[in-house]
Design a protein around this nucleic acid. Structure first.
Length: 275
DNA sequence: CACGAGACCTGTTCGC
DNA sequence: TGCGAACAGGTCTCGT
């Protein structure tokens, strides 16, 4: 489900609070409940409880698609994968069917990790770099220059779509924002990375940043039954618009499968030979 | 190194 | 109406 803009939205809600609940910064964890064993990667469930209880939340950040919750002695890392969500509720509210992990706070609130498909994962570690260490750069980091991006990109012979989805190449893009960015940059998703010139790579980086920033501005995208209040789904240019007219040229948007992921593009605006 | 298939899971939607 | 297939925002592992 969540890509960079959705995770950013969730993190900023937890960090700053919303009209419905306050910031979680500073809250102390009093109890923890794990309902699906495989949700927790490390440490073992019994050790998790012993270690997490009593710690206060120092900070809440995002790295790629990870939610990074800094505690006093440890870091709690949460990856929402396809269907995960984080919700703040009253600690005495009924447990929902898909709650996998719940942290209760001393102020009567709780943080619930809800995840119907059970793909999401949680780590508690004093060494978050063990989990985050191989992630590529943040696309919105102003320190990432077009020249850096060009240098990193053209050493690969892979197709653009799978390369952009590779979190070790660039951290945070998922299926939606990759399709949207490639359309904005007018690049065919099957184009080989090492065939791009500098101007194309520069435009690609600008396009990635533009779609991510628009996604964040609209609080992410909410699709189907996994709804979280974002609006970006109303502004997709290609994603899930198969057969509908391209907003540039009216050509019907096409859907193909690349690396087992549905891929949407305009066959007229996005041509492999464009150079 | 690059790619494809299968696995992990549940819920919704599509097509006959 | 009913039922199985296809599909879903992600990532890992294995074989070629």
């Amino acid at each position: 489900m969540p890509e960079l803009p959705e995770v950013e939205t969730i993190v900023s809600n937890l960090r700053y609070g919303t009209p419905d609940y306050p910031s979680l910064i500073g809250l102390r964890i009093t109890t923890a409940q794990l309902f699906w064993l495989r949700t927790l990667v490390m440490p073992q469930a019994d050790e998790f409880g012993v270690r997490v209880i009593g710690q206060c939340i120092d900070d809440i950040l995002r790295r790629g698609k990870f939610v990074v919750i800094s505690l006093v002695d440890d870091t709690l890392l949460i990856h929402l994968r396809m269907s995960g969500d984080l919700m703040v509720e009253a600690a005495d509210a009924p447990l929902l069917p898909h709650h996998r992990l719940v942290l209760n706070f001393e102020n009567g609130l709780r943080l619930s990790f809800n995840d119907p498909r059970k793909f999401g994962r949680v780590w508690l570690t004093a060494h978050p770099e063990i989990v985050l260490g191989d992630l590529g750069p943040e696309p919105l980091d102003v320190g990432l220059t077009a020249q850096d991006f060009y240098t990193r990109l053209v050493v690969h012979r892979r197709q653009l779509k799978p390369l952009l989805l590779d979190q070790n190449f660039l951290a945070g893009l998922g299926n939606i924002y990759t399709d949207e960015a490639l359309h904005l940059a007018r690049l065919h998703p099957l184009t080989r990375a090492d065939s791009l010139n500098f101007e194309q790579v520069e435009l690609l980086l600008q396009s990635i940043r533009a779609v991510l920033q628009e996604g964040i501005r609209r609080n992410g995208a909410s699709i189907d039954w996994v709804y979280r209040g974002g609006e970006f789904q109303n502004y997709f240019r290609v994603y899930q618009r198969t057969g509908e007219p391209c907003l540039n040229c009216n050509t019907p948007i096409q859907r193909i499968v690349i690396g087992q992921r549905g891929t949407h593009f305009c066959p007229s605006c996005q041509q492999k030979t464009s150079r």
